[in-house]
Design a protein around this nucleic acid. Structure first.
Length: 767
RNA sequence: UGGGGCGUGGCCAAGUGGUAAGGCACCGGAUUUUGGUUCCGGAUACCGUAGGUUCGAAUCCUACCGCCCCAGCCA
């Protein structure tokens, strides 16, 4: 875009003029960089992208689009010990998912030869030297923020000696840490980054791209600006913590004689309330099992947001709207939620679902009769066409929240004697309430309908205050629904560096699993990865990664705005959803988070079992609860543990793999016992077999029974242990386990919508 | 007791000498077969503080206060 808009006053609604765009405007006006705009997104392939990266991606790629420039993707892979092609793959997937495409793809490791040549030049010019102090000595010589550093005794080595040493460093003559190459600048500089910064370190490590060709690796500062220069980047944008590096960036590009060098500009990184956005903390959540992997829908990773149901356009809109500045700030998570609601309002078809079912019998509707009602997919204000048939019959499900025995002020849903509209159907009136004699729990509503109100309008013109959603009990389909909420209950989970651990602010109610929700029959053909609005409840995403067999799993992306819940905070959590805490038996440990409410209360025996599994077996509460509530699972777990199985490993198979249908016939109908499941779990834990093999064997076990261990021996299914791989240094291992956990999950997901790279080969040495 | 940054309503964020945009959140009202959406309207800002320059300052000057970053052979 070399010409400015005809009318400078013209409104630029799509892209606000932040300080970076303003700067580029003036660069262009003054003819900097020959009128070119070239940016780049330079991630290190050592972790998954999160929404903070999305801000940078939108900035860099957005600028290229707006100014008719280019944007490269460059993997800043200068540290062989933490990087992995798996990450590089997922990063590319995420960028494309967001809707951007790079002009060209580069790796800093492709520039290692050029970088080395420049290092030689620096030595020849007397601007760099080989230092032989050890790590501790270097630190001691660096001084502190208030005291100048001291020169290294090796600082004045001759050019010849430096050249010789540096060549031998490259040749592999020295051990890690024996020497480093440093820039010769000023050990008394007020800017710590200028106190003879390290340029190269020796690292006898295998690089995922250059293999064993190098044992000498450039530091960030010696690689980044030069890579920008090689790619002829004009505007090098990064986050605030690199401000101090800018002086060095400029020194280095000048020292090697770059003409028209790129310039670095810093902006504030993104923070969002009620969440954490740092690789370290996110890794801690994954490794501590506080979330279910990097793509857990509660994580702010792009993969997590994707599984939560966020659209790429909503994330882009969010990034546009939060602005770009240099002040450290925390964006309200409500801003993100607004972005996705705003997008889905016009994109998600409306359907009906009942989360906490309450039976309604229409007494004056003939038994055995049913009819179909036409229901549009879109509300009147969304200009889209399309509808489906909704079956109606005598017995219905409604949501328990939509009925109140003693309606509070302003409640205009169903209550004794009151009339409401069933969406797209009829007016019904509640005539009688059936309650459990002992507990008083409402178990059923007896209602009458007005046949004249078919379609939802009364010919006599009478009005009803409320419209509620419903489903025909005989036609509804079962589904699992996962209600996600913010991961932390504290707005800022990490208040101070030395403050309390952020994990103590984890929200115990961030996930509620509803195992038996009902969805309308039209959803039988819904494609994984599609999004719906469950009317009056929120937006939901059909998750393919979580599906088990033919069971559909819907993740709640975000609730609808709910001014009623706001007005009456108590009404949001009605008595029905509160879990009756049993008083019998041992009291629950006070340190444990409250049981997430689910639809079915546990018996006293089941509660005991649940608490035991949760506390003694350390099974996650939701899983422990599911097992305790299900006799077949309960028996299998007990059998498995008696046979020596590790409870948490066995649980994975019981809860996440065993199809619901297998529980129907009772324990006797199964061709296997818990002992075989324990055997299988152990084989996998020991890494005797791989995940896919384990899954195959499990399928076989379900059908025919038998001994997994025996099969493995008979058929030679053992994995080959890669001894070369296991020699990899240990720091790398810590960073490698997360992608593996994710990859394992991806490979167990249904075949479609697989967005996770696999890591079959590496699984071997990760256990 | 060094250096580099940043401080505008509850949260983001424009504005760079002429008398405080916009978004989110919040509160009213209208419309509504989603307590959704949409549409109207409203309340919040002495622009970190204190001085100064000027006819006039969020914008210029001075001092002070607060927060963030830098002492990895990480990026």
């Amino acid at each position: 875009m070399s010409s400015s808009p005809a009318n400078p006053k013209e409104e630029e609604t799509s892209t606000p003029r932040d300080f970076i765009r303003t700067m580029i405007d003036s660069d262009l006006a003054s003819g900097q960089h020959g009128g070119r705009v070239a940016t780049r997104f330079p991630p290190e392939p050592n972790g998954y992208l999160h929404i903070g990266h999305a801000k940078s991606i939108c900035l860099n790629f957005g600028l290229a689009e707006e100014f008719g420039g280019t944007c490269n993707l460059r993997f800043d892979d200068t540290n062989p010990e933490t990087e992995d092609p798996e990450y590089a793959r997922s990063i590319q997937d995420d960028i494309r998912w967001l809707g951007f495409e790079w002009d060209s793809l580069h790796y800093t490791s492709d520039y290692f030869d050029q970088l080395y040549t420049w290092a030689l030049e620096l030595i020849e010019k007397g601007k760099a030297y080989v230092d032989s102090l050890n790590e501790e000595e270097i630190r001691a010589h660096r001084g502190t923020v208030t005291e100048a550093g001291r020169n290294s005794p090796y600082r004045d080595r001759s050019v010849e000696e430096n050249l010789d040493l540096f060549a031998r460093m490259k040749a592999g003559e020295f051990a890690d840490g024996a020497h480093v190459l440093r820039a010769k600048i000023d050990m008394a500089a007020a800017n710590m980054k200028m106190r003879d910064p390290l340029l190269y370190r020796i690292r006898h490590a295998h690089h995922y791209r250059t293999g064993d060709r190098w044992c000498l690796y450039p530091m960030y500062d010696f690689a980044h600006g030069q890579s920008d220069a090689i790619e002829r980047i004009t505007h090098s944008l990064c986050t605030l913590e690199f401000e101090n590096n800018r002086e060095l960036y400029d020194w280095l590009t000048a020292a090697i004689g770059i003409e028209d060098p790129p310039h670095q500009t810093e902006f504030a990184r993104l923070n969002i309330s009620y969440t954490v956005l740092s690789k370290r903390k996110m890794l801690e959540l994954v490794e501590g099992g506080h979330v279910d992997g990097w793509d857990d829908p509660r994580m702010a990773t792009l993969s997590g947001l994707r599984r939560r149901g966020y659209t790429p356009s909503s994330i882009r809109a969010f990034c546009d709207r939060i602005g770009m500045a240099k002040a450290n700030s925390v964006v309200d998570v409500a801003q993100l939620e607004h972005a996705i609601r705003d997008d889905l309002n016009t994109e998600a078809p409306r359907v009906l679902a009942v989360l906490r079912p309450l039976k309604v019998v229409i007494e004056n509707y003939p038994e055995g009769q049913n009819e179909e009602l036409d229901a549009p997919y879109w509300p009147h204000d969304v200009p889209k066409e399309g509808s489906r048939a909704l079956p109606f019959s005598r017995e219905l499900w409604i949501d328990r929240d939509d009925f109140s025995l003693e309606p509070p002020q302003g409640f205009f849903r169903l209550a004794p004697g009151r009339e409401v509209r069933l969406r797209y159907a009829y007016f019904i009136r509640c005539e009688r309430v059936i309650q459990d004699e002992t507990s008083g729990e409402v178990t059923e509503l007896r209602c009458t309908y007005d046949p004249a109100t078919r379609g939802g309008k009364a010919p006599d013109g009478r009005k009803v205050k409320g419209t509620i959603h419903w489903l025909s009990a005989a036609h509804a389909l079962p589904a699992e629904v996962r209600l996600y909420d913010r991961l932390f209950s504290e707005e800022n989970p990490s208040p101070a560096k030395s403050g309390p651990d952020f994990k103590q602010f984890l929200n115990p109610d961030s996930l509620e699993v509803i195992e038996r929700a009902w969805i309308e029959p039209s959803l039988a053909s819904a494609e994984p990865g599609s999004r719906f609005q469950f009317e009056r409840l929120g937006y939901f995403y059909l998750d393919s990664a979580a599906a088990r067999g033919d069971k559909k799993v819907f993740n709640r992306t975000v609730t609808l705005r709910d001014s009623w819940a706001k007005k009456r905070p108590r009404a949001a959590k009605p008595a029905q959803s509160r879990q009756p805490k049993t008083q019998r038996g041992t009291p629950p440990k006070p340190s444990q988070p409250a049981t997430p409410p689910t639809e079915r209360p546990l018996s006293p025996e089941q509660t005991l079992a649940f608490e035991y599994y949760r506390d003694e077996f350390e099974i996650p509460p939701s899983d422990a609860r599911m097992i305790a509530a299900e006799p077949v699972l309960d028996t299998l777990l007990v059998q498995a543990v008696q046979a020596g199985g590790v409870p948490t490993s066995v649980t994975r198979w019981l809860v996440h793999e065993l199809p619901a249908s297998a529980r129907e016939g009772g324990i006797e109908a199964l061709p296997f016992t818990g002992a075989e499941i324990a055997e299988l779990a152990t084989l996998l834990d020991e890494a005797t077999i791989s995940g896919p093999v384990a899954k195959k064997l499990f399928t076989e076990l379900l059908e025919t029974g038998g001994s997994p261990r025996q099969w493995v021996e008979e058929r030679g299914l053992q994995q080959i242990t890669d001894s070369a791989g296991s020699k990899r240094s240990s720091p790398a291992t810590a960073n490698k386990s997360p992608p593996t956990a994710t990859a394992r999950k991806a490979s167990s997901a249904s075949s479609s919508a697989k967005s996770w790279p696999r890591a079959e080969g590496r699984r071997i040495h990760n256990r």
